[in-house]
Design a binder for these strands. Structure first.
Lengths: 365, 365
DNA sequence: CGATGTCATGACACCGATGTCATAATTAAT
DNA sequence: ATTAATTATGACATCGGTGTCATGACATCG
């Protein structure tokens, strides 16, 4: 690979002059510049970042670690991986500021994290981001001092800067919207117990009910997914069965996420229950491949992955540049409710007519 | 950040001796080693990859470019992005050999590719991989000589090393399996015209029929998806309508991919058609979130993304190390058929009984 | 016209590792 | 015991850029 000395020799100048042409940090004569530029093109010269870094000690690199450091590591099966959207959000911010992203995947084994961090430190990464695959608490090995770290989609007990989805608010907004559409008996099939998202979303559900003056009915809430995936079909079937056979069944079923909603579609249809005519269904995540493709398209709260990534990246950059933006920790990012035709507006219980049309989904034909 | 000189000073030895402790490339006295190791720990010293690279000219970096350089760039909407699995396949091979992956995303604009390549060259990446989001032809700017390039999930006209899914074979194997299960009237709802996958999979479908002595019936084949996504619902509805009202309708519908199969589920159920009792459905991709979650679980041909990534990484490494493994270009990677309960075995047309049970899906209850 | 300032350029040291070579201290071999 | 081989260590140059300082050629100004 050509060096700055090769260029200098061909252009008949000193290496320092070539450097000046490259960086524009001092005036260079017109003819000299042309000669240098010609030589650069001729050799296909590209400056070495490593050599540059030796002097400047700025690497322009950001290290990104992803992977499932879950307490319940469920093997090596890759899933839908929407957390890539977080990575994309980070990437778009970073590339706009000229930083280069190095990524490493733990492959599900948290034991590899220290090794990955070390690699990044060897490359003198200026900052690190850890991305979790779902909202969770993590314990990371101590980051090297001087290298800022931001957590995305996870948090720890040490007060490390952390960007999280606002699950409580997202679910609240969705349920509030359902209530606005005339629903008051709202079933909720939750994610597995113990997950942060489960608790927070249930809180949001309750708050929306409370704000509307609707009493919380525990009969309407049931666990839809368990940690043991093999049992999910049976658990969900049973939960739906129980909720639908209540004396006063719900008019809409909120699902813990879109994947669950997809299963609910299958189960309801198997029983001859039509959506949204007989019952409405809502999800969570706005996992677009599911939400937009299901028939009817699914109303769902958006998990703002890309925005979370961008927030985390912004935060990291401000830490690197030592800007003292006082940032609330954790930073909660909320997303919109995506209203699609899996939910219909119904006449409210008090007999009032519906004030506005809410369904905007397209039906075939 | 501490340097090797700091360590040397504290340990009371020369920098070179510290280097020897780090690399173990020459014997070091027991007591000296201990003193050096103590100093390293004390300072939290991590060697600088940049400085190392200056001498060795080996960066240990691999550049990975992803993004939709599609001729039909359909805007900025991120989808399910299963191509991350390719990245994971690459990552797992690379980390096993101690290489570090730098990734950059074009964000959908092919104009950014040269800029990204330049960044990688500045970092003296030892090899580049370009990953496309679906099987397609691409035109990349000429790679810098001396830096090998491998294409994953795409190919070009220049004979650049390329790893592709074996769509023809995958579809063939799936259809052959359906025939084995007693099906002989096999409908096929294709992906949009013009895509490589569409043509190849249709070829595989035809070959499987031919091998079984079943005449190809064009009436059973219809375009299920178009490039214009807004029309997909209508197109698919119509195609199903037409195929099912044939005098001799199919017993199974093959869908261009799993996403289409998910829509087909919805459409069939809306019409009161049960799966798999009334008709079987098969997909393509083994997009697990869909295939495993749909009810009933979907029989589908696997698009072996992770294997493709691993293959591409292996190939790149052999190019970097100048090993002359003669590699067929393009390298086709095939995946298994995932047999689930969306397809039932039926009595073959000739009245023979079914020779073995094929459904192994779990039903709730 | 001499003093001062700006422009254009080069010599040289330095960043932090490692390769090469030299050297001193042991140990093994003859 | 003397030579040869091995061990343990350091001095120094080098990789490819850039920061610092010096220098010569002009231009400007009082």
């Amino acid at each position: 690979m050509a060096t700055i000395y090769d260029v200098a020799k061909i252009a008949g100048v000193s290496p320092k002059t070539v450097s000046r042409v490259l960086n524009g940090d001092a005036p260079v004569g017109e003819k000299t510049r042309e000669a240098v530029e010609k030589a650069i093109l001729e050799l296909g010269y590209v400056p070495s970042n490593a050599a540059r870094m030796m002097r400047s000690s700025r690497s322009g690199l950001i290290g990104l670690i992803t992977g499932a450091i879950s307490t319940t590591s469920d093997g090596n099966e890759p899933k839908g991986l929407p957390d890539l959207l977080i990575v994309q959000g980070i990437q778009s911010v970073m590339s706009a500021t000229g930083m280069t992203l190095m990524i490493a995947d733990t492959g599900g084994s948290s034991a590899r994290v220290p090794e990955l961090i070390r690699t990044f430190v060897e490359h003198r990464a200026e900052g690190l981001i850890y991305v979790a695959d779902y909202h969770q608490r993590v314990e990371l090995p101590p980051a090297p001092k001087g290298t800022p770290l931001v957590l995305a989609n996870c948090y720890d007990d040490l007060g490390t800067p952390s960007v999280l989805p606002d699950d409580e608010r997202g679910q609240h907004n969705l349920v509030a919207r359902l209530i606005q559409a005339g629903h008051s008996r709202i079933g909720y099939l939750t994610l597995p117990k113990g997950m942060d998202a489960t608790r927070l979303r249930l809180d949001g559900y309750k708050r929306a009910l409370a704000e509307a003056g609707i009493a919380f009915d525990p009969e309407l809430v049931s666990t839809g997914f368990m940690h043991d995936k093999l049992r999910n079909s049976a658990v969900l079937w049973d939960a739906i069965d129980r909720i639908l056979s209540l004396p006063n069944p719900p008019t809409v079923l909120c699902c813990g996420n879109d994947e669950m909603a997809m299963r609910v579609y299958g189960i309801l249809r198997t029983r001859g229950i039509r959506m949204p005519e007989d019952i409405s269904v809502a999800g969570y995540d706005n996992y677009r491949v599911i939400a937009e493709t299901l028939f009817p398209p699914l109303t769902t709260a958006e998990l703002p992955y890309a925005a979370m990534g961008a927030r985390a990246a912004d935060w990291l950059l401000s830490l690197i540049n030592d800007e003292n933006h006082e940032q609330i920790n954790p930073t909660l990012v909320s997303g919109p409710v995506n209203w699609r035709s899996s939910v219909t507006a119904i006449a409210p219980a008090d007999g009032n007519t519906i004030r506005f049309p809410l369904s905007n989904g397209r039906n075939p034909q």
